[in-house]
Design a protein around this nucleic acid. Sequence first.
RNA 1: GUCGGGAUGGGGGAGUGGUACCCCGUCGGGCUCAUAACCCGAAGGUCGCAGGUUCGAAUCCUGCUCCCGACCCCA
Length: 529
Amino acid sequence: MTHASEEARPLARYISTTIPYVNAAPHVGFALELVQTDSLARYYRARGDQVRASTGSDDHSLKSVRAAALTGESVTAVVRRNSSAFRAQGPLLQARFDEFISTSGDLRHRPSVERLFRACKANGDLYRRAYRAAYCVDCEQFYRDEELEQGVCPEHGRATEVLEEENWFFRLSRYQEKLAAAIRSGTIRILPAARRQEVLSFVERGLSDFSVSRVASRAHGLGIGVPDDPSQVVYVWFDALANYLSVGGYGDPSAPCEWERVGRRVHVLGKGVLRFHAVYWPAILLSAGLPLPDELRVHGYLTLEGKKIGKSAGNAVDPRDLVRDYGATALRYYLLRHIPPFKDADFARQRLVEAHDSELADELGNLSLRVTSLVQRHLDGIAPALGEFAEREQQLEQIAAGLLARLDRHVGDHEFDLALDAIWELVRATNRYIDATQPWQLARSAITDAALRARLASVLAVGLAALHVLAACLAAFLPELAAKLSLALGRAVAPLALNSTSLVWHAPRGETLRPPEPLVPRIRERRSA
RNA sequence: GUCGGGAUGGGGGAGUGGUACCCCGUCGGGCUCAUAACCCGAAGGUCGCAGGUUCGAAUCCUGCUCCCGACCCCA
């Protein structure tokens, strides 16, 4: 056995969320992105890939300055508080990230931004240019003429003044052809296809250079200084996008960073920041001589009970409240199965509760309980071995065995709703199988009939095998529930590997089941008559 | 204004050429192992409107109506 080749498996996937501004606490919209991204990461880990999943916070936005001004806090206090609130989102939602990049707090970030800036500059893509535009002192930002109402700031209704300053600009125009080609060819795969078209037509309409720095004196101490030009700070978007490099150690030039080594680079993002990820970011990477992202998965936005959500709109619901009221599993389930992955949709608590109760509790939870109860009562709680497969068993086996290919396809296409639909076909088929075989009837005659006794054991073994398959499949999406199901079936941990969904593969092995109890208690008790 | 998305039975969603599908809800039945859960069946849709292509369209084309979004920022 050679020693040198015994390296760790190569990193197959880097998967990221965007890093949100921290001018306010997190809301459900970002929870959607976290849960989608986490499910993706967990799924590929279960399939045997080495995965690095990252999230973080963008601490250098001037919006935080305004948020602080409103409450009278210091900017650093606002940033620190909200950044840690975002950091807590992962554990809250059972979303497991390997990295959390805080752009102000993570020591790897600044050198990464600096190196990226220098790389673009060395390639001749950064230049200084005068910028002259209307400026609102209250907003502390520039406006284009068409955004103003007769020279008056739309936010504050006060007259703007014309200001001129020098900024660094990025030669985006130079990359138009390469970007168009990369997007058209699928080198950068953009999901859904409609978003790809959108970006493509934007690129083909012509790209103009964009500013990548601001005057430092107006930055309120936020941001990263432009290398060799202390009068400027790096523009917040250039800064924020670089977080995807910081994760992999790009700031340290002594070794190739992960971004360069990883098999696939996958970004999950909201439609509002598509342009930054599909145009500016790839152009910056091209300039710096770094590989392009491989996939951009663009989700839609949520409304909340029909109303627009916004960190600034004030109606944001704290995901902590949702988890407190319904549990992380219910929230994840609703977001994954009932929010279409790419489209705008309405988040409605009532539908969350209905989905949880009828699908998780009634269909899946009850299935688990009825099977384990039968095993407990008639087989002393010891999982029996599989017997001969007749037609019914073969039908169920077919559904189970075909599941993995469907999951691969749907997760590959970011269709979490369809992935869960596919899993639920097995849930429903297994309920039907139990109804059709009527193990409780078999048990009645089994006392005197050895053949029926064997048949009973076999039926319940099939039921248990199906539950094991379900636990394995659900681990990526509902990790806590999957673990609980595994435990109920007598296996200590949730299955990590998802190599097969065949019932035979997952056949019980004599485990001693736990005393049966409801797997998923209903949120809303249904008690009538 | 420019660009884009959507309109499917009471509610929410699938469905890009071949008898319209899933979940909830409603009604009826079965079962009784189970969280009054599970299973079966039924009612309910001219798939926004009008044309067109086609042997055949929710699905392709044209026009129209309505809703929403993006174009400054936003997950």
